[in-house]
C-alpha cells in the first residue's frame, strides 16, 4: 500500500503571473551571484594574474573578491527572503 504522498492542499496554487514574478526574483538574484562567482574564479587564472595581484585592502584583489563571495551570498539571501512572500 505504498501510496505516494501527495502535496497537502495548496494554500494557494500559483498563477502564471506569480510564477513569472518568482522566476524573475530567483533568476534575478542567481544570475548576478553566478556572474560574480564565475568572474572571480576566472581572474584567478594565469591569463588574468596581473589584475588579480593588484593590491586591495592589504591583500591581492583576487583574494579579496574570492572572500567576498561569502558575504555577497548572505546579502542576496537576505534580499531573497525580504522580497519573497
Amino acid at each position: 500500500m505504498s501510496t505516494e504522498p501527495q502535496c497537502p492542499a495548496s494554500p494557494e496554487p500559483a498563477t502564471g503571473r506569480s510564477i513569472r514574478t518568482r522566476f524573475f526574483l530567483s533568476f534575478g538574484l542567481f544570475v548576478p551571484f553566478f556572474l560574480f562567482y564565475m568572474g572571480t574564479a576566472i581572474i584567478q587564472t594565469p591569463t588574468l594574474r596581473e589584475f588579480a595581484m593588484t593590491p586591495a585592502l592589504g591583500m591581492p584583489l583576487g583574494l579579496l573578491l574570492s572572500l567576498m563571495v561569502f558575504p555577497l551570498s548572505w546579502l542576496l539571501i537576505a534580499v531573497y527572503f525580504a522580497v519573497w512572500k
Binding site: 533568476f27 538574484l29 542567481f30 553566478f34 562567482y37 574564479a41 584567478q44 583576487g62 531573497y80
Partner: peptide, 20 residues
Amino acid sequence: VDRIWLAIGFFGGYMAVLLL
C-alpha cells in the same frame, strides 16, 4: 592562495539549490 577555490567552489553550489 591558489588553492582557496576548492573551498569556495564547494560552497557556491548551494546558492543554485536555494534560489532555483
